[in-house]
Amino acid sequence: MANREYSFTAELWEWEAQASWFFVSLPEAVADEIEERFGHTAAGFGSIKVKVTVGSSRWSTSIFPDSKRGTYVLPMKKAVRTAEGLTVGDPVEVELEIV
């Protein structure tokens, strides 16, 4: 399976420890497959480079492992949240490509 692209819907949440940092958590099955297939390519802090599409917004970033949640988390920058009209608790439809 050479697929490097994943689609999922996940809830937008704000990191309690660091106000104004917003994320979506990858579904466990997606995170497990990414870890298995691409974990060996991880950079600092276990990050994996990705390209993301949410609505009409596209950008490059990294996903990061979150041991508390047991999955990877995807940061959602303010420009994207504003452009797509997203607030905490909203379902976010994500298309993610491992770079």
Results as ranks from 00 to 15, higher is better:
A19E: 14
A19R: 14
A19W: 06
A19M: 09
S20A: 15
S20G: 08
W21T: 04
W21L: 11
W21G: 00
W21N: 02
F22C: 05
F23E: 02
V24T: 13
V24L: 10
V24A: 11
V24G: 09
V24Q: 05
S25M: 06
L26H: 14
E28Y: 11
E28P: 00
A29C: 02
A29H: 10
A31Q: 00
D32Y: 06
E33H: 08
E33K: 03
I34V: 15
I34W: 07
I34C: 13
E35F: 13
E35C: 10
E35G: 15
E36M: 12
E36R: 14
E36D: 14
E36W: 09
R37E: 12
F38P: 04
G39R: 00
H40A: 13
T41K: 04
A42G: 06
A43W: 04
A43N: 11
A43G: 14
A43Y: 06
G44K: 06
G44E: 13
G44S: 14
G44N: 10
F45D: 10
S47H: 10
S47E: 04
S47Q: 10
I48Q: 10
I48P: 09
I48F: 14
K49C: 05
K49H: 12
V50T: 11
V50K: 07
K51Q: 12
K51A: 14
V52W: 10
V52D: 05
T53W: 00
V54N: 03
G55E: 00
G55N: 01
S56A: 15
S56D: 12
S57K: 04
R58K: 15
R58N: 14
W59T: 10
S60A: 15
S60Q: 13
S60K: 13
T61C: 05
S62L: 05
S62A: 15
S62P: 03
S62M: 04
I63G: 05
I63A: 09
I63R: 01
F64R: 00
F64M: 13
F64G: 03
P65E: 02
P65K: 04
P65L: 08
D66F: 05
D66Y: 04
D66M: 06
D66L: 10
D66T: 03
S67K: 12
S67I: 08
S67G: 06
S67A: 15
S67Q: 11
S67M: 09
K68T: 13
R69D: 03
R69F: 06
R69T: 00
R69N: 14
G70L: 08
G70F: 07
T71P: 04
Y72S: 02
Y72L: 05
Y72I: 02
V73W: 01
V73A: 07
V73D: 02
V73H: 03
L74I: 03
L74D: 01
P75M: 10
P75T: 03
P75R: 07
M76N: 03
K77R: 14
K77N: 11
K77Q: 11
A79M: 10
A79D: 14
A79F: 15
A79I: 05
A79W: 15
V80F: 03
V80I: 15
V80W: 01
R81Q: 07
R81E: 09
A83P: 07
A83M: 09
E84A: 11
E84H: 04
E84M: 11
G85E: 02
G85Y: 02
